[in-house]
Design a protein around this nucleic acid. Structure first.
Length: 738
DNA sequence: ATAGGGTTAG
């Protein structure tokens, strides 16, 4: 490879006078028309009668094989060609090289090529194209050099392929050398060269402007040019520009095909331009792509991302054939729905459904790819289904997607969310390469587990590795400082983010700082910081302050913050319950009973309390005071026993509440945790997901159980993850609690 | 006869 540029330069450098920006004249290439009745009937090479085929039919027949991607049929036609003595026909043999390459069998393509007694530039170009098509850019370059040595001159098509080879190699430098050659020969306006240049600059230059320049220099932009620039916009984070270009294309009267429709729909998906997507859907129907699979897949992604689940399901049900992308769309769609589900029961159903679809996909005989795996791992993290996640991990070791960054990052997240920081960091260390997102995931994981020092060291490593942190990375870094109470460091990083990296703080950054002050009991400073924010504090910010004020006994500020919460979410039963508990612990009985009456009148007493626990491949869900579960009696006995023991232990420190503990309704997580104790063998941890925030009583209870049972217990509630070990919770008792 | 496409992680 090292010698390559000089060879290319050696080839291109000629006396100045020879260039003069002439339009290249290429050796004229004979054109030939052919037609055949076989093609109209739709053909099947297996039933071809050799005697009926004329040599002029071979080329279109082989063309059909390319469309059908049928290596087998191409081989049969190859047999016919040999028997009929047509193997000296350059057109036919070039087609054959092309077909074999397109079917992914480069050995066959090369073999045919090597037997040829004469070749022209199209034959060489076809072979190169085959190597590019099969991700063997080095081989393509090699063929190019061979071609030059053989005295053939490249055409615009050859140069296009060479430029695509440069894209595959991420070799912009070599690409620019070729670009120079293109300019000298005045070929920038050529469609295939221009398309390839546009592709080169967007794919590996990361330079949308250069891509745009190349695009607008094309004399006759075809639908491929437009597709290239439209997806370039998407790749470079300017989806809106891509959508504008698409309408510009329509105005130029160029008819869209399935490729540009899918590209443009994917842009709609990234910026959630659902309305525009709808219009494109109807356009697609109008011009005959209603049952086109890739277009339908893209529409499904769009609708699922927009939460239009029934539309997506309609499309899915209407499909006669599905592809892996279809399954992936459905799985990632269900995974996304988990995040926005109204309660955790719905979320768990979505998760189970996603895993179900994963099973159906595998039964259908298709092989999952890296996108499938990363989606399924995300589902496992949301379900806290460590066992399932580990199984997928094991499966991935076999299928070989483990080296993919996307999969590695999904593994880090899965292990982290399931509470296993050791396995998360093992997965991280084993990744062959890392992206900004991988680093960020691991930094955040360390921060969440209270391993602040590790998080900050990793942040330095990341910068040493040359990756630039973004706003999410800083959320992790600030969370690490907050957890460790490192006030000076936190403020330094906060300034570094703003000044050195020019990142404007988002709500989450303020959240970390405020959380830090709150944990330290520096409530006034927390409040000052809230007042300094350039936007209105959200629910998360106020609930941090409420939690801190309760723990540190600043009632006045606490009630103020709770009021702000109620302003933001006026009818939220969770906030009312929290306020009620605050009145009770402040012994403001009058306020408490007034509030309780208001809650009854407004029907705000009903909390959406669900918990669930995932064991093996099943998800078990629980309601408050649940008597419906399968092992109700055993759960009930053990729960009573544990409650009894915990009461004895804390008898003295207990503050009397209005409700009688004997008759009170128990929240769902108690049942889920006890069920876990019964069903999950030691020493495995117990992982429970809960739909609302934990209350103090349950928090204390689980702390106690973690001591008594000597088990690690995790409860992920609607606000944060609580990890109980030896009677201590990772939230440091500063998590917002009811 | 040679050129192009869709999903993705915090």
């Amino acid at each position: 490879m090292a010698s390559l540029p000089s060879v290319v330069i050696g080839y291109t450098i000629k006396p100045e006078s020879e260039f003069k920006r002439r339009t290249a004249t290429f050796p004229s290439i004979e054109k030939r028309n052919s037609s055949s009745s076989y093609l109209e009937k739709g053909f099947d090479a297996l039933s071809l009668d050799l005697r009926e085929v004329e040599s002029s039919t071979y080329v279109p027949l082989l063309q059909k094989c390319v469309e059908k991607n049928s290596f087998q049929e191409a081989q049969i036609i190859h047999g016919h060609i040999i028997k009929s003595g047509t193997q000296e026909d350059l057109f036919v043999m070039t087609s054959l090289v092309n077909v074999y390459g397109k079917c992914g069998v480069m050995e066959a393509a090369r073999k045919v090529f090597d037997t040829l007694s004469k070749r022209n530039v199209v034959t060489w170009t076809s072979l190169m194209s085959g190597y590019v098509h099969n991700s063997q850019p080095e081989a393509a370059i090699h063929v190019f050099l061979e071609m030059l040595e053989n005295g053939s001159y490249p055409t615009n098509y050859t140069l296009g392929i060479i430029l695509n080879t440069c894209s595959l190699l991420y070799d912009v430098k070599l690409g620019k050398v070729v670009h120079g050659y293109v300019i000298k020969y005045g070929l920038e306006g050529d469609t295939s060269v221009g398309n390839a240049l546009c592709n080169l600059y967007s794919k590996c230059g990361g330079n949308l402007d250069s891509a745009m320049r190349a695009f607008w220099r094309i004399g006759e932009r075809n639908v491929i040019s437009w597709t290239t620039i439209v997806s370039a916009c998407g790749d470079n984070g300017n989806s809106a520009a891509g959508l504008d270009l698409f309408s510009a294309m329509l105005e130029e009267g160029i008819e869209p095909n399935e490729f540009i429709l899918t590209s443009v729909l994917s842009l709609c998906c990234t910026i959630q331009a659902t309305d525009l997507g709808l219009q494109i859907h109807s356009l697609g129907i109008k011009i005959g792509y209603e049952s086109n699979l890739p277009v339908t897949n893209s529409l499904m992604y769009l609708y699922l991302k927009s939460g239009w689940f029934s539309e997506a399901k309609k499309l899915f049900d209407g499909l006669e054939k599905v592809s892996l992308v279809t399954w992936n769309a459905m799985i990632s769609g269900y995974a996304q729905m988990m995040d926005v589900a109204e309660n955790s029961l719905v979320a768990s159903r979505n998760g189970s459904e996603a895993l179900n679809i994963f099973l159906r996909l595998q039964r259908s005989g298709l092989k999952p790819d890296l996108f499938t795996i990363s989606s399924v791992l995300t589902v496992c993290s949301n379900l806290l289904a460590l066992e399932q996640g580990e199984q997928i991990h094991a499966q991935t070791i076999k299928t070989g997607f483990l080296s993919e960054v996307v999969v590695g990052t999904a593994l880090v997240n899965m292990y982290n969310k399931c509470g296993s920081i050791k396995k998360a960091s093992k997965a991280f260390v084993e990744m062959p390469s890392r992206t900004l997102i991988s680093w960020t995931s691991m930094i955040t994981a360390f921060a969440q587990h209270g391993l602040s020092q590790n998080a900050l060291v990793l942040f330095d490593d990341m910068r040493l590795a040359g990756d630039r942190p973004n706003k999410v990375t800083f959320v992790g870094v600030l969370a690490a400082c907050s957890h460790a109470g490192m006030v000076d460091e936190a403020l330094t990083y906060f300034d570094m983010m703003k000044n050195d990296f020019k990142i404007n703080p988002i709500m989450d950054h303020y959240g970390c700082i405020i959380d830090m002050f709150v944990r330290l009991g520096r409530l006034e400073e927390a409040f000052d910081f809230i007042k300094k924010m350039e936007f209105e504090p959200n629910e998360f910010i106020w609930s941090l302050l409420v939690a801190g004020c309760r723990s540190h006994g600043n009632l006045e500020l606490g009630f103020y913050a709770a009021e702000q919460l109620l302003n933001l979410k006026p009818k939220d039963p969770e906030i009312y319950a929290m306020l009620l508990n605050m009145y009770i612990s402040a012994e403001r009985w009058k306020d408490a009973s007034r509030l309780r009456k208001a809650m009854k009148d407004e029907k705000l007493m009903k909390l959406k309390d669900w918990s669930w626990i995932s064991i093996k491949d099943k998800v078990y869900s629980f309601k408050p005071d649940d008597k419906s579960c399968t092992h109700h009696q055993q759960v009930d006995i053990l729960l009573r026993d544990l409650l009894e023991k915990s009461r004895n232990l804390e008898k003295n420190s207990e503050t009397e509440e209005m409700e009688d503990k004997e008759t009170r309704v128990h929240h769902s997580e108690k049942f889920a945790v006890v069920f876990g104790l019964l069903k999950i063998q030691k020493p495995a941890a117990i992982r429970v997901v809960k739909s609302m925030i934990m209350c103090r009583d349950c928090h204390n209870f689980v702390k106690f159980v973690s001591v008594l049972s000597e088990r690690e217990i995790m409860v992920r509630d609607s606000k944060r993850l609580h990890r109980f070990v030896d009677g201590k919770c990772s939230c440091g008792d500063f998590g917002s609690l009811l």
